[in-house]
Amino acid sequence: MTPPSNPSRRTDVLAGTLEMLVLRTLTLGSLHGYAIAQHLARISNSVLQVEQGSLYPALERLLRKGWVTARWAESPTKRQARYYTITAAGRKQLREKVSDYERVALAIARVMGRA
């Protein structure tokens, strides 16, 4: 765990975006909550500050929508952990979100005169 290099430039993550990030992470395979949090922090170089406390409610919402499923299994540390798996509907949702995101990102880039 390396602390964020420059705390002043961290960006808060919006709720809908968090769900998209979690779904994207789960395309790697079944993971428990802690592993998801780790992965998000590592991948974004800790630029995206995922409030760990909001990760778990987000997972509950994904469960209710049927985009992920959960089961209890033994972790490599020999403890019982709750593993999440993305469903087919979750993948579909992710594809839609990504294409939405790309459209918006492109539009913003144009407005900012970068593309």
Partner: peptide
């Protein structure tokens, strides 16, 4: 998605208070 989601809701409905324990255990693990 409808089915998975419904199945999950039903599980929560049936387990009720015990589901809270499950959530607690998850945080403990974290």
């Amino acid at each position: 998605s409808l089915l998975d989601g419904l199945r999950h809701r039903l599980r929560v409905l049936l387990r009720g208070g015990r589901y809270t324990h499950e959530q607690q255990a998850e945080l403990h693990f974290h």
